[in-house]
Amino acid sequence: MSSTAASVRPAAAGAHAMIELQHVNKWYGQFHVLRDVNLTVETGQKIVICGPSGSGKSTMIRCINRLEEHQQGKIIVDGVELTADLRNIDTVRREVGMVFQHFNLFPHLTVLENLTLAPIWVRKTPRKEAEDTAMHFLRRVRIPEQASKYPGQLSGGQQQRVAIARSLCMRPKVMLFDEPTSALDPEMVKEVLDVMVELAKEGMTMMCVTHEMGFARAVADKVIFMDKGEIVESNAPTEFFAHPKSDRTKLFLSQILGH
């Protein structure tokens, strides 16, 4: 498929990192949920984040498109710093795509309408062009025939693939995945992971919170382990799985890889 150029923006020459988190701290009330998080994601890198529940991994990536707010530190996405400034937030959200654990498709719109809504109203794309793009991405995720169906008529795996296509229609520079397969029945996990692997191979910058370690081994440039709000360990996948450095990492790996 000659879609490489169509789906991924090339990095600008001599570019800054795509995503930078510098000394990011976040509190829920008095509860310190992100502790001095530092992270750099270069263009085209795939980062997999794992950790026990409550470790702050979902919170961290939700801060990147300002679904959550950080109180201290800097988050810079493609050169734009995320502050309270609403215009910056709008700019960032246009360039960052997000796939949710529970899909969050719009149940009252058809699949095609789900995909064309944002391009028409946010990027001001003409309807015909938006629909062409939408069908293109539906073919990419291998369900073009579902275009006029409603989300309620699709299986979980199909819905999540539609959700991925919906984000891709906005031509983002970065894709964030928040446990994309956790809510799926086991037999549908593979079809979604396949799409994500393809996306990765085309050079999309990706940050993925997941428990699917097979996916991490296949695709990730870096695997990050978070616990209690801080990044405990960060390494290339082979090193990460074979020689975990911290005890907490070892404990976690034994728990999820053991059964």
Binding site: W27, Q71, Q72, A84, D85, N88
Partner: peptide, 14 residues
């Protein structure tokens, strides 16, 4: 937890 940031006079500031 740090104090809330100060307001800026622009329509971008929420």
């Amino acid at each position: 937890r740090p104090a809330a940031p100060r307001m800026r006079l622009s329509l971008g500031d929420p």
